[in-house]
Design a protein around this nucleic acid. Structure first.
Lengths: 190, 190
DNA sequence: TCTCCTTAGAGACTATGCGTCTCTTATCGA
DNA sequence: TCGATAAGAGACGCATAGTCTCTAAGGAGA
């Protein structure tokens, strides 16, 4: 009956594509392994041979689709522009994933990806360092709480707010919170 | 066989207590209606007669146990003390609920309680207003983004951080983020 | 080209648990 | 005393996770 059997990378990509399509059409709550297998024209065992469970498969599908945000950091010439651009990237990525999938994953796989958070802090530190090198801001030490404030607040908004995050949300996070904290450190501890 | 049948408030309290105990012993993922019914020595129908589903029951059980945080606001004499006390109350409450239950509820009942967030913003506004009346800070307008920054960041920490929130987390949120934002508005828009 | 080994594809199977339905009977109010 | 309501008990249908088993496709090696 079957003529061609897929193998290796070709098969794996088809499985991940099917999982991605399925989770977007049905949402995480109605995402079933059976549906993914059917969509990929294969059996469940082919999935379980590669991923231990639903959460693993969904995470792999996300990784397969979305690249890293923090590589190739934005370089607009100002700290404000850089920060806004980075927040915009986060918002864009989140828009392709959605709150429902994120909540589902958090409840089933809470230790999702500690690495992501560390890298984001590093990215913000780089933006601030560059601004200091340009002479845009004084070369002061900035505590991690300040560096992570805009990105953490944005994640909070994306995960809990009912309404979608708008560009003005990002502007407020930068102009009302982040930049005042950076500029306020002019006089103070170093 | 059965001698005494419970009814009304007595029965309802027993059901909510059983649900609360069950969700804490088993966690949200393993929380089953059958287990609650068994623990309360009753049938599932008694539960479904009152709550439409798992999420409804868990939310009701939480409400039955935890009071309001924002009534009787702390009044320590300083904005710093008041804010720390409010954050501590949030942390205490969250410690009795836990991240796993919160995530579970968010994924099954995302529109949990919009009211809570509005009231927390109002509480922060009151603390700031009192401080201004005492002359501790100038009477400037504070944008909502600033008012909600410490509480939102705390919620973010509680929901995503693997490690428990420590007192020093709260101190950092107040001293590195909130108070600098408030004090920085001395010179600036009003 | 033949043979062997891995594993794809297919689907049966077990276990769990939601939510529904039904039945008997305790308890309350009139 | 009687009727209405709902408690307590449990069977039931259904969905789906994850496991197990089988057949045969297709690549690797002789």
């Amino acid at each position: 009956m079957e003529q061609q059997r897929r193998r290796g990378a070709e098969l794996e990509a088809a499985l991940l594509d099917a999982a991605w399509d399925e989770v977007h059409e049905s949402g995480y709550a109605r995402f079933t392994m059976e549906a993914v297998a059917a969509r990929a024209h294969t059996g469940k065992q082919v999935l379980y041979r590669r991923w231990r469970n639903r959460a693993d498969l969904v995470i792999a599908a996300m990784r397969h689709r979305t690249g890293s945000i923090v590589e190739d950091l934005p370089d607009t010439g100002t700290l404000r522009g850089d920060t806004l651009a980075l927040l915009q990237r986060m918002a864009d990525r989140f828009a392709t994933i959605g709150p429902e999938i994120t909540h589902g994953l958090l409840s089933e796989a809470p230790d999702l990806d500690p690495e992501i958070y560390r890298r984001m802090t590093g990215a913000m530190a780089t933006l601030v360092k560059r601004a200091a090198e340009r002479g845009e801001i004084p070369a002061v030490e900035v505590p991690d709480r300040v560096l992570t404030a805009p990105t953490n607040l944005l994640r909070y908004e994306m995960l809990f707010a009912r309404e979608p995050v708008t560009p003005s949300t990002l502007v407020e996070l930068v102009d009302d919170v982040f930049l005042p904290l950076i500029n306020g450190r002019r006089e103070g501890s170093g």
